[in-house]
Design a protein around this nucleic acid. Structure first.
Lengths: 346, 346
DNA sequence: CTTAGCACTCACCGCGATCGAGTGCTAACA
DNA sequence: TGTTAGCACTCGATCGCGGTGAGTGCTAAG
């Protein structure tokens, strides 16, 4: 069976209508609403064909049709109009990213929030990977007699705090010395560069009195930088899910909420698919995660100098507004990449 | 009408039953379940009195009774058994607090999470107030040519990061000098101590080349420390709300979710009531916030040396388990206070 | 004061009737 | 051959109705 122009227009009508109304749509409605110059009976015949092709389904015998996951897939891959974000949205995103580009941890949360506000869907983001990130600066800051803060700045400008408890914390001058020492030895290195040899070398070259402290501090630095999967993932706008009729059953909503609080699940989601620059769409049953079978995920990676940096995903019902989600996401990614580029260039 | 012993026992039975089942409870059920040696008819008469007193209400004519907010109030103030947390819970809380007491920002989030897990209610916490908190240490850390990080450690061991953008960031040695300068002048001061005079004095005594940077840095420190309401509030376990039958209506749940994302609302909630050491309970309609009229809030402040530090609140339906919420909350607060005490003593 | 008895109320459940949106099929038509 | 009007049919949703049962309030007797 051939998917002619008319079938495509009917499919588009069904998808557009369903995205807006969340109600199954019948032949008569299409005939009236989108006057295509053909009768409802003809549309009925075409719809019968579309169903046979698996592009639309009937929830029950006397109901209208609803797009299937396969239908959405065709739509997303071939039919969907490309369109950009509005200048206002672009300006808003650009400003927000420029303002916070120096503080990536914070920026990621703001982005998640902003995207959920613009799309009214849930947003998940992952921070830049630490793996193969190099140390730009370490700084030891005194707290009290038994603890200090390790501040770690990486080349991707992620700032991390880590409180370290010590039996007997060094005083301020000692910390200054240790800070200099550590920066001299560690600056510009990535986790792979810091082997056991360097590790013990630094300890042995430290003043006798500082060795215990240096050992603890080095371990903390190592574990912070090694923990590749330790990067943060944030979810924003999760409550938007409650606004969709597909989640009017509280139990269903609760399950999805629960899933979206699972770090591992979010990481799995964001890491799925290839890591190309393209925006990827995972529709309903294509999801490997069970709780997501009724949802779609639109995701993109932001990058910097060819290294994979992190990902951003928009989660909505399968009938989500793919055009809007994809355009906003691409706007965000473009702006982040641009800002990160300027950062490395400047 | 006098509230005799028997009426009290019946009221307790109604409240306990309703806390567990969320179903109106009738006279026959009480007679059977809690054998008090009196017939359902007698209980009926007593219940009629309790209703007249406004302690219980009937959702509709042929239904059982449900405690009123006034009934809960009486229960919480006078009838409720005091009981402590289990040794296991106590050990768990104690360990978590001791482990993280040096990093209060993080600790607060962990506490919110832990309380929601233990109680299955939502938890809100506010970080220690910055107001009248003194500066323990400031540290400037380099990021790149155009930005530095300000790390601020207060006497309550809160560690704050703030990225500062500068037209031309000082180099490392310059930052060292500035760090020393700022520590010399600011250590031990609270926001009220840092007036305009000191402010300009520091700037004028700084080397000519550093003045622009010092000015920006000082402003950042000031705004961080002055912003009394700028303290963070976190909500945890909000999704637990979806498990309660009183929120099986998604719309109701959505409204509460929305409210619990409003910073201002949370601050209002946590600041309501007096600031004594006592655990406070706000029941249903006693709430000033509209969205909370169906909920109760159990809240406590944790303190340190007589200064108000911050608050923790547990939010559940009005039929929440007050005994459990209050015991866990008091356990948490006791442990925090103890840990904070040790901190200042050690 | 307590309790058995009883009439009454009313939410809830299950049932059948009705309604209507939507379909598929058929036959007529261009 | 494709399009369309007509029609029977399907089936979820809605409504009305009587029955059921939990629960009450009242009354009168113990």
């Amino acid at each position: 069976m051939v998917l002619n122009e008319r079938k495509i227009r009917i499919l588009e009508a069904i998808i557009n209508d369903y995205i807006n109304t969340a109600e199954p749509i019948g032949s008569r409605t299409i005939a009236k609403k989108y006057n295509m110059g053909i009768s409802s009976a003809t549309i009925r015949n075409e719809m019968s064909d579309l169903e046979e092709m698996g592009l639309i389904v009937q929830p029950h015998a006397s109901a209208g049709r609803v797009p299937s996951d396969k239908g959405y897939r065709l739509y997303v891959d071939n039919l969907m109009p490309k369109h950009d974000i509005t200048p206002a949205e672009a300006a808003f995103l650009h400003q927000m990213i420029i303002n916070n580009i120096n503080h990536i941890d914070f920026l990621m949360k703001e982005i998640a929030k902003a995207i959920s506000v613009l799309t009214r869907y849930a947003t998940i983001v992952s921070e830049p990977k630490f793996y193969k990130t190099t140390i730009k600066h370490v700084q030891l800051v005194p707290i009290d007699e038994r603890s200090i803060v390790l501040v770690l700045v990486t080349d991707s400008n992620v700032v991390r705090n880590q409180v370290i408890s010590l039996a007997d914390a060094p005083d301020y001058e000692q910390l200054q010395r240790l800070t200099s020492l550590l920066n001299d030895r560690l600056k510009g290195l990535c986790s792979a560069d810091i082997g056991d040899a360097l590790f013990t070398d630094i300890i042995h070259n430290a003043p006798e009195a500082d060795r215990a402290a240096v050992s603890v501090i080095l371990s903390t630095i190592m574990s912070a930088i090694e923990n590749e999967d330790g990067r943060q993932v944030y979810a924003g706008g999760v409550k938007n899910i409650l606004a969709f009729p597909e989640f009017s059953d509280v139990d269903k909503a609760r399950k999805l909420f629960h899933a979206l609080e699972e770090r591992e699940m979010l990481i799995t989601l964001l890491n799925s698919g290839d890591e190309s620059d393209k925006i990827q769409v995972v529709i309903g049953s294509e999801n490997t995660v069970d709780e997501m079978k009724d949802c779609s995920l639109v995701k993109a990676s932001y990058r910097f100098g060819g290294r994979n940096y992190g990902s951003i995903g928009v989660i909505g019902p399968t009938r989500m507004n793919y055009v809007q989600a994809m355009s906003i996401l691409s706007g965000v990614v473009k702006n982040i990449n641009k800002a990160l580029g300027e950062l490395s260039g400047g």
